[in-house]
Design a protein around this nucleic acid. Structure first.
Length: 217
DNA sequence: GTTCTAGAAC
DNA sequence: GTTCTAGAAC
């Protein structure tokens, strides 16, 4: 059963509204109801939470882009990577270690799917869609029905995905994370390229079947 | 972030 | 005719 960011009643309300109100009176949603605020609800949803401690909460990504895909969010309200400063360095280290420890205990016995390639990666999207700082913990198979388009692909397989260790280094050296929006947006539009052998692929279905050729049978 | 779908690409 | 992508969503 899929976990949802919004209660179905939210959507029914809107549907009812458009049916019975021809003038389409703008139903002003509370900010918390907007899709971009969904992670906060997921953090509070026991069905979605995988593990937590006093500083952070780990949840299952609702639309996993690989066989294993988690998000780790600090309990502290930090809107995103652009809000980070040196005062958050200890937290950033904690989030990374939290994810690595989880993978070590829960996935160390997993069969190696792609030989000579990292099994998991840890990091942040340069331009995230969802509010509240969240670190991705994702297995590198990228074998998932929810991975559907070029943006999905490039957001995990290009430098748009900022490795957690690299992000920490940026904060250590510059005191914050500077995002060149145009540059990172351009990465999302790059041609599809296999993350393992870097060969370009014609389209998504081709790519998705190609990456399977790297899997250990 | 997703869903939906028009029209491009094949 | 079918597959696939990409942009709107009030």
């Amino acid at each position: 059963m899929a976990k949802r960011y919004f209660s179905s009643s939210d959507e029914e309300d809107l549907a009812t509204d458009s049916k019975h109100a021809p003038l389409k009176s703008k139903t002003k949603r509370k900010p918390t109801g907007h899709w971009s605020q969904g992670l906060l609800k997921s953090m509070e949803n026991p069905d979605t939470v995988v593990k937590s401690d006093e500083k952070c909460v780990m949840i299952n990504d609702m639309y996993p882009k690989a066989r294993h895909h988690y998000l780790i969010l600090p309990r502290e309200n930090i809107s995103g990577i652009s809000s980070l400063g040196k005062q958050n360095l200890e937290l950033l280290h904690h989030l990374l270690k939290f994810g690595q420890d989880y993978v070590k205990t829960e996935h160390s016995n997993d069969d190696t799917l792609i030989p000579d390639y990292p099994q998991f990666k840890y990091g942040y999207h340069a331009i995230p869609s969802m509010n509240r700082l969240h670190m991705h913990v994702i297995s590198c198979d990228f074998d998932s029905p929810s991975l559907k388009n070029k943006k999905h692909w490039n957001s995990f397989t290009t430098d748009f995905f900022i490795d957690a260790a690299r992000l920490i280094k940026m904060v250590e050296e510059k005191g914050r994370v500077v995002i060149d929006k145009e540059y990172y947006e351009s990465l999302l539009k790059k041609n599809l390229s296999c993350h393992v052998c870097r060969r370009e692929q014609r389209n998504m279905p081709t790519l998705k079947s190609h990456i399977r050729t790297h899997f250990k049978k």
